[in-house]
Lab assay of single mutants.
Amino acid sequence: LNLKQAKEEAIKELVDAGIAEKYIKLIANAKTVEGVWTLKDEILTFTV
C-alpha cells in the first residue's frame, strides 16, 4: 500500500464514521503510511 492509497482508505473510513473535516485534514497531511494508520486509529479512538 502506498501513501496515497493509505490516505484514501483512511479518509473513506473517517468519512463513513462521520468524523469532522479538521481531523480528515490531519490524515491528508500525514507523511508516512504508518503515520496515516496511527492518526486514523487515534482519531477513531478519541472521537467516536
Rank of each mutant, 00 (worst) to 15 (best):
L1Y: 12
L1A: 10
L1F: 12
L1Q: 09
L1H: 10
L1E: 09
L1W: 09
L1D: 10
N2K: 13
N2C: 09
N2A: 15
N2F: 12
N2M: 14
L3G: 00
L3R: 01
L3P: 01
L3C: 03
L3Y: 02
L3I: 06
L3Q: 01
L3S: 01
L3T: 02
L3A: 02
K4I: 10
K4S: 09
K4V: 09
K4C: 08
K4Y: 08
K4D: 08
K4N: 08
K4E: 13
K4G: 06
K4F: 08
K4P: 05
Q5F: 08
Q5E: 08
Q5K: 13
Q5S: 07
Q5N: 08
Q5L: 11
A6L: 05
A6E: 03
A6Q: 04
A6D: 01
A6N: 03
A6K: 03
K7F: 04
K7L: 06
K7Y: 04
K7E: 01
K7W: 03
K7A: 04
K7T: 03
E8C: 11
E8H: 07
E8F: 08
E9N: 08
E9A: 15
E9L: 14
E9Y: 14
E9C: 11
E9S: 11
A10Y: 01
A10P: 00
A10G: 02
A10T: 04
A10S: 03
A10R: 01
A10K: 00
A10V: 06
A10N: 01
A10I: 04
A10L: 04
I11E: 04
I11K: 05
I11G: 02
I11F: 04
I11A: 05
I11L: 05
K12I: 05
K12L: 06
K12V: 04
K12G: 04
K12S: 06
E13G: 05
E13T: 08
E13P: 01
E13Q: 13
E13A: 11
E13C: 13
E13S: 08
E13W: 10
L14I: 03
L14Q: 00
L14H: 01
L14P: 00
L14F: 04
L14M: 05
V15F: 07
V15M: 14
V15S: 09
V15R: 15
V15K: 13
V15I: 15
D16C: 11
D16P: 02
D16I: 11
D16V: 10
D16F: 12
D16S: 13
D16H: 12
D16W: 09
A17R: 12
A17F: 08
A17Y: 09
G18K: 06
G18S: 04
G18Q: 05
G18M: 05
G18N: 06
G18A: 04
G18H: 05
I19N: 01
I19T: 05
I19H: 03
I19R: 03
A20V: 06
A20F: 04
A20K: 07
A20R: 05
A20E: 12
A20M: 07
A20Q: 09
E21F: 09
E21Q: 09
E21R: 10
E21C: 11
E21K: 09
E21N: 08
K22G: 07
K22M: 10
K22D: 07
K22L: 08
K22Y: 13
K22A: 09
K22I: 11
K22T: 08
K22S: 08
K22R: 11
Y23M: 05
Y23L: 06
Y23A: 02
Y23R: 02
I24W: 15
I24G: 03
I24D: 01
I24Y: 10
I24E: 02
I24F: 10
I24P: 00
I24A: 04
I24L: 10
K25G: 06
K25Q: 12
K25D: 08
K25V: 13
K25L: 13
K25Y: 10
K25T: 08
L26V: 05
L26Q: 06
L26A: 06
L26T: 04
L26C: 10
L26D: 03
I27V: 08
I27D: 00
I27K: 00
I27N: 00
I27W: 01
I27Y: 00
I27C: 02
A28S: 10
A28T: 09
A28Y: 15
A28M: 15
A28R: 14
N29G: 10
N29H: 10
N29C: 13
N29S: 12
N29V: 07
N29A: 12
N29Q: 12
N29W: 09
N29K: 11
N29P: 02
A30F: 02
A30G: 03
A30I: 05
A30H: 02
A30V: 07
A30R: 03
A30E: 06
K31E: 11
K31G: 07
K31Q: 13
K31A: 11
K31P: 06
K31L: 13
K31F: 06
T32W: 03
T32C: 03
T32V: 02
T32D: 06
T32H: 03
T32R: 02
V33W: 04
V33H: 03
E34R: 06
E34M: 07
E34Y: 07
E34C: 09
E34P: 05
G35V: 10
G35Y: 11
G35A: 15
G35W: 10
G35E: 15
V36S: 01
V36A: 02
V36K: 00
V36P: 01
W37S: 06
W37V: 07
W37P: 00
W37L: 11
W37N: 09
W37G: 05
W37M: 12
W37F: 10
T38C: 14
T38M: 14
T38N: 12
L39N: 01
L39P: 00
L39C: 06
L39V: 06
L39Y: 04
L39D: 00
K40R: 14
K40F: 14
K40M: 13
K40A: 06
D41N: 15
D41Q: 13
D41G: 07
D41K: 12
D41Y: 13
D41V: 12
D41T: 11
E42N: 07
E42M: 15
E42V: 11
I43A: 06
I43N: 00
I43R: 00
I43K: 00
I43P: 00
L44W: 05
L44A: 04
L44S: 03
L44M: 09
L44V: 05
L44T: 04
T45I: 09
T45P: 04
T45A: 15
T45E: 09
T45W: 13
T45M: 14
T45C: 13
T45Q: 14
T45G: 14
F46C: 13
F46Q: 09
F46W: 15
F46V: 07
F46I: 11
F46G: 10
F46K: 11
T47V: 15
T47Q: 11
T47F: 15
T47Y: 15
T47I: 14
T47A: 15
T47M: 15
V48W: 08
V48K: 12
V48I: 12
V48S: 13
V48A: 14
V48T: 13
